[in-house]
Computed example of a mutant assay.
Amino acid sequence: MSFDEFLYSIGESVERIVSAVRSFIFPEPSENPPSFGFTGRFVKSNVTLHELFSLHLQLCFLLYLFLNFALVFLTRNPLWLIVVAAPYFLYLRYLLRRYGDFLLDKKPYQVFYAVLSALSFLAFFGYSLVRLYAGGIVYVYLYILSVAALVLIFRWYFKRTFGRDYTYGVVEEVKNDVIKVFVHDDIAANVKPGRYWLPAVPDAEPGRVVKVLVEDRTFRSARPVRIIEVYLPQSSQSSTEPKNATE
């Protein structure tokens, strides 16, 4: 390799690195779906891209919490929390901006993880400052109670803004008087993904999309209880709600 070719290869490498950094810091929506190879190892069966994306967000957040816990107890320097938070928030922003359109309902996931991550940083960073400068255990407890209050306020705001008492699913099997419905992960309805047996309704056939009423449970995931609408082909739909009697 000549010296000119060597310099040219270095220039190409630098250009690729700069382009990758620019794409990471200023992400644009992608038309190609993300690849979560590492996260895929945690699932035993085929899952939808939405479920895999949601699981990836959960794992990233849990890893961030674990690192914060470790830093709080292993070091008294709160600056380490900033060192961990900076790449995490950049990566979270990159994921949601570049691949957020592959989520079934992007906005609730963006708000949930952005605000919850910010509250987590505030909790750990503030705790480190209080422990370092205030010293008294009373101040620590007061700060923890303040953070808990903020979390409850956010929970109320999120449910008020994005919460709903229904979700959507796909009919997989009809068996006598019950129907097996696959429900996606739905953070707005607080429903875990899975297959649920629900009471049978007219027009519910395998492959059709249905609207499912969910029952909210305090500090637990909501539970699908019954189908309230069946979406028929050609944009028509069949409601299973009782109709008012007319004269």
Rank of each mutant, 00 (worst) to 15 (best):
S238A: 15
Y133D: 13
R217T: 02
E205L: 12
H184F: 15
G169D: 06
G194W: 05
G194M: 10
R217I: 06
E229C: 12
T167P: 03
F112G: 00
L119P: 02
S236H: 15
L145S: 08
P233I: 08
G207W: 08
L198M: 09
Y231M: 14
R131E: 11
G135A: 10
V212D: 00
T218C: 13
S239Q: 12
K106E: 12
P206A: 04
D165W: 06
E215L: 05
P242F: 04
Y113Q: 10
S235A: 15
V181T: 02
Y231P: 13
K211A: 11
V147Q: 10
F121M: 06
S120D: 05
R155V: 12
V170W: 05
P224T: 11
V230L: 09
A189K: 01
A200T: 07
A189W: 00
V214C: 00
E215Q: 10
R226V: 09
G135D: 13
R220E: 14
K211W: 10
I227P: 01
I187E: 01
V230S: 04
R131Y: 13
R220N: 13
Y168L: 08
L122P: 00
P242S: 04
L198A: 05
K192D: 03
V191P: 00
E205T: 11
S238H: 15
G207L: 06
P202A: 06
S117K: 00
F182A: 14
Y127K: 02
Y168Q: 04
K175L: 11
D165P: 12
E172V: 10
G135C: 11
W156I: 01
V130Y: 00
P108S: 07
D101P: 11
A149L: 12
L119E: 04
Y168V: 02
F125E: 11
V151I: 11
D101E: 15
V214Y: 00
S239K: 14
L232Q: 14
K175E: 13
Y139A: 12
A149T: 05
T161N: 03
I187V: 06
D216C: 06
K159F: 04
Y166M: 06
Y196H: 06
